[in-house]
Amino acid sequence: MPVTSQLRKFLLPILIFLLALSLISANFHTHKNMSFLESLVVEITAPVQKVVRDVVKGVGDVWRGYFHLVGLESENTALKGELQELRRQLNDYREAYLANQRLRALLNFKKSIATPLLPAEVVAFDPSGWFQTILIDKGKKDRVVRDMAVVSADGLVGRVIGVSAHHAKVLLILDGNSAVDALVQRSRVRGILAGRGRQRCLLKYVQRNEDVQKGDQVISSGMGGVFPKGLLLGKVENVVRGSSGLFQTVEVEPAADFSRLEEVMVVVQPPPEDPARIGSGKSS
């Protein structure tokens, strides 16, 4: 075989590989909305996914309902005890809340404006299983834009990374690509909460001498402009201070239960414009 034909044989795959690699690196996290193709696929498949999910959810509810009936009496007794305890706690919190209100008024603190929340339903999950993303049934038509925070009743869920007309793609805080500027609520120690997949996060860049203990609540710091300050992220599950190194390893269990994620809320507060983009005159 002549040398030129051998070269030609290898040239095409190499060119395709290089092209694909450059497309991956060039396109990663750069688009504001989903592409036309992505939007088309999402708009076609999402309604079917929603129907299938509703059917599965319905069957699951009936199944769970049956099992819940078993042992209902003992559960009822336990819940009554729990209710008493919660009532006492509620009273304590009410007192603390009133004291807080009075102190705020005294110090002339500006009362924070309540952020509007948009309820949304989870339609689908990441098809590959390697990443941690969900698809929700609210999109551009509902004023959802990229980088809006998504929360559940328990805490922060993630942020919007792609939007089509009626749906949005959300990157969960569990994903390895997710990073949230966070604070340890008790000691105000700062770090970056990065996803590790499978119901675990890692609070990175916390210095070894900083005060972090097991059970500490971790909240969003509000830095970075994507997530509002004070959203509950999770609690510290494990702290490891090695014999060497600058930082300690802080494992965090997310507050939101991602295994039972059905309804979420989008924080409808437009994220601040990136100064770099404004400077360069780019609209995206």
Partner: peptide
């Protein structure tokens, strides 16, 4: 479409 990666992966 469902991943945090954009195209051609």
């Amino acid at each position: 479409v469902g991943l945090p990666l954009k195209g051609f992966f």
